[in-house]
Structures are given as structure tokens and as C-alpha cells.
Design a protein around this nucleic acid. Structure first.
Length: 501
RNA sequence: GGUCCUGUGGCCGAGUGGCUAGGCAGAGCUCUGCAAAAGCUUCCACAGCGGUUCGAAUCCGCUCGGGACCUCCA
């Protein structure tokens, strides 16, 4: 089955055909490391991690580039500081690289918590100033950029005129019409420098107090906020590559500007497939700085936020995100996260048990209907992934399969009901989809081994007590352990098992 | 104001015109010393009004509601 992905550019699902199979180039817009990542940021990184994993599973050789924006628009943090201390004090105390370092580390830590695979290349904007300047020079030389008072702007109107003839007007990705924008775009500062208010900055002259600054043919300044992605994507993936991803809110203006810049320099549309994940909302509203409703990842993991009734583990959050299709909005609530937490536990307990079983190959099944139903469910996993990475349906099917696994575990059905071949197939594919493709890993704390030993001992004592019909002791052990988050389960044959909640 | 998306049961969330999505919560049953877990069964739905169709949650129109982008934004 071929993989189909929804291309924002054409607004439809298309069969994914790599430009140079088996090689695939994928660029995803990374974070601006001027602050801590929040729940909303987690979505694209988890979504595209799954895309990456699935492409790898398909046997493709993927170069996954995800940038780190560590230059340019750090105004907000600077402004906050400005209110408190004098500009001179900022110069003395606030070293930009300190911020960058701190938040880059936090970001990497969060990515690891989520079990996201590291991208092949993680380039930084500050490491590619030269490439950005070269690109801007090229744009000016071609007549689509102009200098004004030490800054350089992209001439959107001229670009639109020329490229409309080539069927690639400005606004092709976001479905915008330039004339309308000329009428509706708000007035901003420094508009007088621009020829048209829709023009965007390629290079900005640095005001005296601006700390991050580089030499350029137009004086000291810093790059505009779209050019870094164009420069780095071109450098590492070529003039045209396969997939460009990012959040839906980047579609305009960021990706639109990227298209314009790259097209002028490289004479072709930079990416063939544009994928955009939708937003995470909270109380029906997008989670974002400007709405003042963000839940930072560290707060989420610690349960330390007024909106949170408890802490949620990274895998719970990952699973929560994968329970929906990436193109729809996803509404945050404690109820929804708690549902995910419980569902994930049920899934993983059954999965871990299944993984530890040994089955013998063989084709005989006493329950042929169940046998073939299981095979169908398992086979559908890949079909659903092929359909625009529909992780929601993949997860739904996992829950179709789980009851059979638990039935086997609790001896509601015999192993012979389903053929050994099928059990082996279920076992293998569940491992593939749960661990390799969805990237869900078993979460367990440190000292687990030692703790297991202690719990084993208590379980033994409880067994003795039960045999003596000393239910007081038996219940005491079970209840006290339950209070500590360790759940004992009595099994049919007198055995006991336990799990950590 | 412009462009676009969306409205599914108590909550989250899939749904390609005809078939039970799935999860969590609720109810019942089985199992159990009692529980828990697990399994089985089950209640609750497609914003409203029209239209197309043999048949619509799914297509079209209108109304109402929600949201995103147009400024930094994942």
C-alpha cells in the first residue's frame, strides 16, 4: 500500500512519491529557544517524529532536518527585562547565548522525555548567518529584495506579479489573495521603510541596544525571521526536497515567505509536500503565549499548574496526542488526559505481557473467526498509517486487539483458539507499531528491580495469609500497597500479579 | 472587515453516502473470601432547518454556535 499524505499546498491527500527514492528530505520548523516549550509545541515534534519513524519503517533513507531558532526575534524577553532593569544592566547581565543554551537544553530534555528520535541534523540560525546573507544577496541581485536604511525587505508585490504568471502567486500555500491583504494588513512600525506594507524583512538593522548583531553588506544587523529556514533547508536538503512540516499557524506568513524566498533563489518550489499539524486548544482556545493559557512541559510533567489536577507523564501526553489525527484540533482537559493515562496503562500492560510470551509456530486455530479477525486488525495498522498517518485509527485497532490478548492472559480463551502463527504475528506487529512507529515506550522509575523484590516478598506473605484465611493481613497488604500506587491482582489459579500505577 | 476551518453521545476523539470506530466515565453480568484487574453485554450521537439521493454524520444551501490566520506563534 502506498503512503498518502495530505498536502496543504494542493489541499488533498496525495500518494507520497519521494523525489529521489529511497532518499527522503524532510524539514520541520523547530522551536525558538527564547522560552520554555509548552504543550502546544509538543504536537508537531511528536507528530513528525511518528512521520519520520514511519518513513524509516517503509525502508526510506530519511534526512530529517529540524532547526533551532536562536537568533533574531528575542524582543519579548528583552522587553520584559527592560521594564525591570536599565538597558545597560541588560548588557551586563543578560547574555543571549545563556538564554539560548538554557532553553535548548530544556527543549532537548523534553524531546527525550517524549521518546522523540533526534533529527538527522539540527542546525541553528546563528550557525548559518553566512548562508542567510548569501541568500539575501541573491534575492537582491534578482531584483526581489531592496535595501532601506540598513534593512533589507522582500518585494512581495513584484514577486507576486512575476510568479503569478508561473502559477505560483504569493499566497499559494495559505490560499490568500495579495490584493485583499494590501487592503487589510494592519499598520506596523517602520512601515515607511517598505515599498509595500506586505513586504517582509530579510535582514534587519540592529538598533543600538540590540545585543545579537552580525556584520553584513548592509551594516550591522540580524536576519529576518523567515530566511533561516530557507537557507538551512536549501543547504542540507537541496533546492527541492520532499516534505516540509510545521504547525498550522506557521502556514502564513512563515511558510509562504519561505516559498517566495527559496523560489527566487532556487527557481522552484522548495518542498513538494507541505504538512501542517493543527493546534492544541485549552477551553476551546489555541494554547499560545498571546492568550496567556500555556502549560509548560515541565509544569505538565509535575502537575504544577492551576489548570492541572494532577501530573501527566510524557508517555501519557504522547499517547494523548496520538489518539487524534494530526490535522484536527485537540482539546486539552484533565478528563481527556486522565482517559489517555488509563487507556495507555491498559494497553501497555497487555502488550508487555504479550511480549513476554513464547508461541510455537503453527497454522491450526480452533476459533477460525477470531484468528482471521485478529489478522485483519493487525494488517489494518499499516493501512491506517498509510492513510495520512491516522494514528487515531491505529490506536483504535490496538484496542480491538487488546481484549483477545487479555482473554488469553486470564484464560478466558485457550492459546489454541488462535494459531501460533497468528499470535506470533500479533506479537511482532504490536511491537513494531507500539514501540517502533508510535514510539511509545514502557515507563518505569529507577530502582525498579529492587522494588520488585520487595513487592514480591509482600506478595508471598499475602499468599500465606490468604491460605490461612487471614483476610485482615491479606487486605492490609493489598490496601497499603494500593495506597502507594501498587496494585495487586488475584488471579484465577491462586496466583498474584501486580502493576505500578 | 477579509480568508479559511469546524460543530459527533457525560468527556476526548475516528469516521471514504448504506455496516458497532476507539478510549475514559456510567449500568449489568462472569470471575473473586471481598475487591481490583480482566472478559462479556449495555445506555447515551451526529448543532438546527431545508435540499439532492432508494438511502446522509458523510454531498449542497441557509441559520446559529465555536475556532484559526491576517502581528510573534507549533
Amino acid at each position: 500500500m502506498p503512503l498518502k499524505i495530505y498536502n496543504s499546498l494542493t489541499r488533498q491527500k496525495e500518494v507520497f512519491e519521494p523525489l529521489n527514492a529511497p532518499y527522503v528530505g524532510m524539514y520541520v520548523c523547530g522551536p525558538t529557544v527564547s522560552g520554555e516549550s509548552h504543550l502546544g509545541h509538543a504536537r508537531p515534534f511528536i507528530t513528525f517524529d511518528v512521520v519520520y519513524r514511519f518513513l524509516l519503517y517503509k525502508g526510506l533513507k530519511v534526512r530529517y532536518v529540524r532547526n533551532i531558532t536562536d537568533a533574531g526575534h528575542f524582543e519579548e524577553e528583552g522587553k520584559q527585562a527592560e521594564d525591570k532593569i536599565a538597558t545597560k544592566a541588560i548588557l551586563e547581565k543578560l547574555e543571549p547565548m545563556e538564554l539560548v543554551q538554557k532553553y535548548t537544553h530544556l527543549y532537548h530534555w523534553a524531546m527525550e522525555q517524549f521518546n522523540n528520535m533526534p533529527p538527522s541534523i539540527e542546525p541553528t540560525a546563528t550557525g548559518h548567518i553566512v548562508e542567510q546573507i548569501e541568500m539575501i544577496k541573491k534575492i537582491i541581485a534578482d531584483g526581489y529584495g531592496y535595501e532601506a536604511n540598513g534593512s533589507v525587505y522582500f518585494d512581495v508585490v513584484k514577486y507576486n506579479e512575476d510568479y503569478s504568471k508561473k502559477n505560483q502567486p504569493y499566497g499559494i500555500l495559505s490560499g490568500r489573495n495579495l490584493e485583499e491583504q494590501l487592503d487589510t494588513t494592519r499598520e506596523l512600525e517602520n512601515q515607511e521603510e517598505k515599498k509595500n506594507k506586505v513586504d517582509f524583512a530579510l535582514w534587519k538593522k540592529a538598533p543600538v541596544e540590540h545585543i545579537m548583531r552580525w556584520q553584513s553588506p548592509w551594516g550591522e544587523g540580524f536576519p529576518g525571521w523567515h530566511i533561516e529556514c530557507s537557507a538551512m533547508a536549501t543547504k542540507y536538503l537541496g533546492k527541492q526536497f520532499d516534505i516540509h512540516g510545521g504547525g498550522m499557524d506557521l502556514q502564513f506568513p512563515h511558510h509562504e515567505c519561505e516559498i517566495a524566498q527559496s523560489t527566487v533563489c532556487n527557481h522552484q518550489m522548495p518542498a513538494r509536500y507541505w504538512m501542517h499539524n493543527n493546534m492544541i486548544t485549552i477551553n476551546g482556545r489555541k494554547m499560545g503565549k498571546s492568550y496567556n493559557n500555556v502549560i509548560k512541559l515541565s509544569e505538565l510533567f509535575e502537575g504544577n499548574h492551576p489548570e492541572l489536577t494532577q501530573a501527566y507523564s510524557p508517555m501519557t501526553v504522547r499517547f494523548f496526542i496520538l489518539q487524534s489525527q494530526y490535522r484536527g484540533t485537540l482539546d486539552f482537559s484533565n478528563e481527556a488526559l486522565q482517559a489517555s493515562e488509563k487507556a495507555l496503562r491498559r494497553l501497555m500492560e497487555a502488550y508487555e505481557w504479550l511480549k513476554a510470551q513464547s508461541f510455537t509456530a503453527g497454522a491450526n486455530a480452533t476459533d477460525a473467526a477470531l484468528d482471521s479477525q485478529l489478522k485483519t486488525w493487525v494488517n489494518e495498522l499499516e493501512i491506517f498509517m498509510d492513510d495520512d498517518i491516522n494514528t487515531a485509527k491505529v490506536v483504535a485497532n490496538l484496542f480491538e486487539i487488546i481484549p483477545s490478548v487479555n482473554s488469553l492472559k486470564d484464560k478466558h480463551i485457550t492459546a489454541e483458539a488462535v494459531s501460533g502463527d497468528t499470535w506470533l504475528f500479533v506479537q511482532k506487529q504490536l511491537e513494531l507499531f507500539i514501540e517502533q512507529i508510535l514510539g511509545i515506550k514502557v515507563e518505569q522509575g529507577a530502582n525498579r528491580q529492587q522494588l520488585n523484590g520487595v513487592v514480591d516478598l509482600l506478595v508471598e506473605i499475602r499468599k500465606d495469609a490468604k491460605t490461612r484465611k487471614d483476610f485482615a493481613t491479606s487486605d492490609k497488604i493489598r490496601n497499603q500497597l494500593a495506597a502507594m500506587g501498587i496494585q495487586i491482582k488475584d488471579e484465577k489459579d491462586g496466583g498474584m500479579s501486580y502493576s505500578f500505577l
